[in-house]
Design a protein around this nucleic acid. Structure first.
Lengths: 203, 203
DNA sequence: GGGAACATGTAAGTCGTTACATGATTAG
DNA sequence: CTAATCATGTAACGACTTACATGTTCCC
């Protein structure tokens, strides 16, 4: 993690989103890239100061009227740093799914417990699918002419694909539990093969 | 993160895997749950000492012969703590995909750059699909009679589903970039609709 | 003898969240 | 007037990785 990803995310958002305040940057993070990235205020504000000190961004002078909003603009050096980072191959994700973990230990806490988590996961995925559909709408409406359209759609498509897959998985998993309750391990193996055919693309 | 997940993972592995050393626990982590979880030695060893001090596990006496391997066994209190944690609803994942992030900022670094990342991602997903197929084989062979079989298969199925979805996405994303190069945003929108129909289950 | 894998740990430093602290503006 | 949202920060703590440090055993 000698990566400083937070700083580069801020640079990237300032590069595609124009001059923004810390608060607005946070909104970008949650709304535009929240499906695959997260940052908290506690990181954004100190990092903005660090970036300003390093001359990668500069604070714009306030307009003196009404509420003080401190906006920042990316500098030429900032752009260079961003480009250097963007051309570096992305680090592999370090996955950490508590849902899968607790499912894996299902034999300790019992099937009914796991069943509950799977139901919740299914509902959560439905919600996210709706959220991403809304994001798609707004991108298609607002970025129709922008050169960022392809990239926005590609990331949105990723969300669509992964959430749909996870939803289908949660359903199938409940079926495996049913099979286990009804017919033991032999039934589980049969149900597994069937589920795999259905939900794994190209299997 | 007032969660202590590392400690609970260790308890879980000792509960389903029997008496194990720190090194063996780490092997479990990478081999059995590596698809959705990771822990490093730097966390496991100190955590083992903490758990032992809290009486949730106890160190087994060495057998005095040859190499010293310090194995641990989960205690009754440890089992209680584990069960309490397992029945708590799992925390939502905080996603952090550098690939998606760098893709999102594609307009800054250029399409050829993104194309490269997508190709690499496709190959990485192929590798992981192979890895998970191997894991499936060994589970079906070795856990055929165990009461952990359903849960292992459910988590493996998740890997299958998600990796296949990601692989399909990477291919489709490259097609969107082709469409953009060939016919601009209008072509992208057409390609997006087509790709979505193909790769999103139930869309 | 040498290299790979086994085996256990510590220390430094980064990363990241949460809670705290403060205050302005706007809509009801 | 009061609750929600806008807005900017700091501090404490915990999580996690990486590098360091050390030694063994097995196989070629």
């Amino acid at each position: 993690m000698r990566e400083r990803s937070t700083g580069h995310v801020i640079l990237g958002i300032l590069a595609v989103g124009g001059d923004l305040s810390g608060y607005e940057i946070r909104q970008w993070v949650t709304q535009a890239i929240g499906f695959f990235w997260s940052e908290s205020f506690g990181q954004i504000y100190p990092e903005l100061q660090r970036l300003a000190k390093a001359k990668l961004i500069k604070a714009l002078p306030g307009e003196g009227k009404g509420r003080e909003v401190k906006r920042y603009r990316i500098s030429a050096q900032g752009r260079t740093a961003l480009e250097r980072w963007l051309t570096q191959p992305p680090q592999a994700e370090r996955p950490r799914s508590e849902l899968l973990l607790k499912t894996f230990f299902g034999s300790v806490a019992g099937a009914s417990n796991v069943r509950g988590f799977l139901k919740e996961a299914e509902q959560a995925m439905d919600l996210r699918c709706k959220g991403i559909a809304a994001a798609e709408d707004s991108v298609v409406r607002e970025d129709r002419g922008a050169d960022t359209l392809v990239y926005s759609l590609i990331t949105i498509l990723s969300g669509q694909a992964v959430y749909a897959a996870r939803r289908a998985w949660a359903e199938a998993a409940a079926e495996l539990l049913d099979a286990h309750a009804a017919g033991g391990n032999e039934a589980v193996l049969r149900a597994y093969t069937k589920a795999k055919k259905r939900i794994v693309a190209g299997a």
